[in-house]
């Protein structure tokens, strides 16, 4: 009997996961670039943010990408969870003293845990924004009047004005950062891209990427906490 759940080979699973993961990595850059305009980084930051939201909610190609995005998330999460279950099953009896290998970094050991943190984040995120847009839930309550279900600017202000939420947001984003630090280089390795000259660069870029993404997203709740 085949051990693999889903009847997809272990390598194929990793390839699909890494392709979906790389798509998500690009998505995060786009998402962060827009989010940063919540902060007063330019004179007309509010205008730019609102225009970006307008574009993202109406432009047809983005609608298509939204479907791809959901597909990537679902594929990545399902394969990630299945893979993890198989991997746990592969060692039914554990060690009394566990590995302390030099290269075995905590980032790589805790992919599933940081993945679950991201999942928790996604649920909260959807409750606050995406489901509001769909009209499934009420917009987040707060001092700012939310004009309509596309008024993400005021929704964001309401959300981040709540210090409990802001702190939680920071903690969860750190989980994302940890996931990304391992995942960036892992995606290339899983696709068979490992080269003595370029792999150190991939690892370096992955480190910079994960730090920029983490600090970028954290800067927003931090701004609200400080002010």
């Amino acid at each position: 009997m085949s051990q693999t759940l889903l009847k997809i080979s272990s390598i194929s699973k990793k390839v699909f996961m890494s392709l979906a993961g790389l798509f998500l990595i690009i998505f995060l850059v786009v998402h962060l670039s827009i989010n940063l305009f919540i902060l007063p980084i330019t004179e007309n930051h509010q205008e730019i943010f609102k225009q970006a939201v307008e574009f993202m909610t109406t432009f047809p190609l983005i609608k298509v990408m939204e479907v791809v995005l959901f597909g990537a998330f679902i594929l990545h999460i399902i394969l990630g969870v299945v893979l993890q279950i198989e991997n746990w099953m592969a060692r039914p009896v554990g060690y009394a003293v566990s590995t302390k290998s030099k290269t075995d970094s905590p980032f790589s050991r805790f992919s599933i845990h940081t993945g679950v943190i991201i999942f928790i984040f996604l649920v909260i995120h959807f409750m606050n924004f995406y489901f509001v847009k769909l009209g499934w839930v009420d917009p987040p309550a707060g001092d700012m009047p939310v004009a309509d279900k596309h008024d993400f600017y005021n929704m964001a202000l309401n959300v981040f004005n709540n210090p409990v939420y802001s702190v939680l947001y920071i903690v969860l984003i750190l989980g994302l950062g940890f996931h990304l630090h391992h995942a960036f280089q892992a995606a290339f390795q899983s696709l068979g891209l490992n080269h003595p000259k370029y792999t150190p660069w991939i690892k370096g870029i992955g480190l910079i990427y994960s730090i920029v993404i983490t600090i970028g997203f954290i800067s927003i709740p931090l701004y609200f906490l400080i002010n």
Binding site: I11, R91, S101, S105, R109, S190, G192, L193, N194
Partner: peptide
């Protein structure tokens, strides 16, 4: 199990087999 790129194998291999081989297998 499957490979999640932790590279503990390479660190512990008594013959120092490189994980570049895993990329080649992929």
């Amino acid at each position: 199990g499957s490979c999640t790129n932790t590279y503990a194998c390479e660190a512990e291999c008594p013959k120092n087999i490189s994980v570049e081989n895993i990329a080649r297998l992929n």
